[in-house]
């Protein structure tokens, strides 16, 4: 039985998507619609990828104020890009087939995420230590990326800089299809694992007692999270707090941490916030601010609020 709150969310998401396609249409309708359709597809899959990767990551780490990005997973991706520019030069970097580049970077990132986190997980390290390591590594990769940025030619730097900030306006038609495939496959696998995720949320001991192979489950889930982060980072760049914002909102709406409810709710909330925010900024405020900045600002506030309320309890 579909939950009533989910149905309402789905209806709102559809309405927002319809508004996104139609509000303020003028000029060559066919061309505008096509452009908007690609943007819609981009924003929807970015929203979905960030929402479900954040839910899964929070479940695995048993921490509700974390996103994969706070742990520096996207910094890993950016560092990969910087390293590519450094070795190939900006000409070579631009000339690379973007899909090939995306595939290579994603695989690299997944491999590194596993290499970094799995040894700690296998030896059942304390999750606090794991998080601390993640944060430190995130800083390390960000610093390395900026070091590379200083070393390279200013022209080459300009090429990389474009991909280092969140940008919801650029459309990447070349990456939309491959991103869509990754998001759909990862999303389907995570949806099939929704009951297992409920058990994983109980922690290592209880989950093992209930028959979950902890190390294997964690490795698989981390890989999926890494793939989804690669999609969103490749399409719009690093977004740190957006996932936190939508998952916290979705949890309020469905009042549950059961993945059967939370996963679709977080997805739909992400779509509504992204598309709705874009409409408001573009058509109501006349492009006064960029969506990336606004979302990060609000998300950051939510992050602080959650930190304060959890420490009070």
């Amino acid at each position: 039985m579909p939950d009533k709150r989910l149905l309402i969310l789905a209806a709102v998401a559809l309405a927002v998507a319809a508004a996104f396609m139609t509000v303020g249409l003028r000029g060559n309708i066919g061309f505008a619609l096509e452009l908007r359709a690609v943007r819609l597809l981009t924003l929807v899959q970015v929203g979905v990828a960030i929402a479900i990767s954040t839910v899964v990551f929070q479940t695995v780490t048993a921490n509700r104020v974390l996103t994969p990005q706070i742990m520096g997973l996207d910094a890993l991706y950016l560092f990969g890009q910087m390293a590519l520019v450094l070795t190939l030069g900006s000409v070579g970097f631009v000339a690379l087939d973007p899909r090939l580049k995306f595939a290579g970077e994603s695989v690299l990132m997944m491999a590194m995420a596993l290499m970094l986190f799995l040894p700690m997980l296998r030896r059942r390290f304390d999750i606090g230590l794991l998080l601390l390591t993640g944060v430190v590594l995130g800083v390390l990769f960000r610093s390395l990326a900026s070091l590379v940025a200083r070393v390279i030619d200013p022209n080459e730097f300009a090429v990389v800089q474009g991909s280092s900030f969140a940008d919801f306006n650029t459309v990447r038609p070349d990456l939309v299809v491959i991103g869509l495939i990754v998001t759909l496959v990862a999303g389907a696998i995570i949806w099939r694992l929704r009951h297992t995720l409920d058990i994983v949320a109980l922690g290592a001991d209880s989950a093992t007692g209930l028959g979950v192979d902890w190390t294997r489950a964690l490795a698989g889930l981390l890989l999926l999270v890494a793939a989804l982060v690669a999609v969103s980072t490749a399409l719009v760049g690093p977004v740190t707090f957006f996932g936190l914002l939508v998952v916290a909102l979705a949890e309020r709406i469905v009042d549950s941490r059961r993945h059967q409810l939370l996963l679709p709710a977080a997805m739909l909330t992400a779509i509504i916030v992204l598309l709705g925010g874009q409409i408001v900024l573009q058509h109501v405020l006349g492009g006064a601010a960029t969506l990336g900045v606004v979302i990060e600002f609000v998300g950051g506030l939510v992050f602080l609020a959650m930190l304060i309320t959890t420490s009070k309890r």
Partner: peptide
């Protein structure tokens, strides 16, 4: 692990409790 879970149940001391459950 899954096979064992049908034979053996364990209750740990002070298990961590997931929220919103």
């Amino acid at each position: 692990s899954r096979r064992l879970a049908k034979t053996l149940a364990i209750l740990r001391q002070d298990p961590a409790v997931a929220s919103r459950l």
